[in-house]
Amino acid sequence: MIRIQGLRKFFGRQPVLRGVDLDVATGEIMIVIGRSGGGKSVLLKHMLGLLRPDAGAVVVDGTDITKLRGAALEAVRRRYGVVFQGGALFDSMSVFDNVAFPLREKTALGAGDIAQRVEEKLAQVGLVDMGHKNPAEISGGMRKRVAIARALVTEPEIVFFDEPTTGLDPILVNTIHHLIQDLHRTFRFTAVMVSHEIPEIFEIADRVAMLHEGVIIETGDARGIQNSTNPIVQQFIHGAVEGAHHVA
């Protein structure tokens, strides 16, 4: 379980997170929605231990990771898989080597076992026979799928998705969402996803939290969020220019 308590973060004098409280239960898909620039990726980076908060805690199974450094933090991160917004594939390596990299560096598996697991993961994300290509030679949708394969190849307990479908066409958005849902059913990992793909995310989310101006203003299941009486939530999910929140 991930518990975020009173998380605050300033960049210079600019408050980005102003006291975020959020619980993510083991095995669920939690999707954090909110406007662009609203601090969703900053919140995710705190959960990954890439940023340190000015106040508050990120507690993963009883351990506050904001207090951890070095080997202790790495021990928590070994349980993680992360799909970055742009994929963050190593452009000096082939698709195969990108997916194989965490196995080669973090496990004692032999070359044959690694090759088998990589091919298996690439097949699960629909990229059979693409291992020899470089990330620059494949499409944006394929890069996202390679990033998902790399995140899942070590069979992590918790997987973070930072806007995994941004910039993709609607068909690819649904393809990626269904892929995540299928993989989640198979591997039962805890998933935290940052997204603003409305309404597509309601099909795969167990729970949705809305981050607005640095605080979580609403949390609930997909139906609860869609029926929310909060005017800011309603304005966001309907994409209305006029509403409770002034759009600059």
């Binding site: 991160r77 993680y80 917004q85 963050a88 560096e105």
Partner: peptide, 13 residues
């Protein structure tokens, strides 16, 4: 800027 360095870190490397 493409988060490849962050990718190393979250892989516990």
């Amino acid at each position: 800027i493409t988060e490849q360095i962050d990718a190393f870190m979250v892989m516990a490397l």
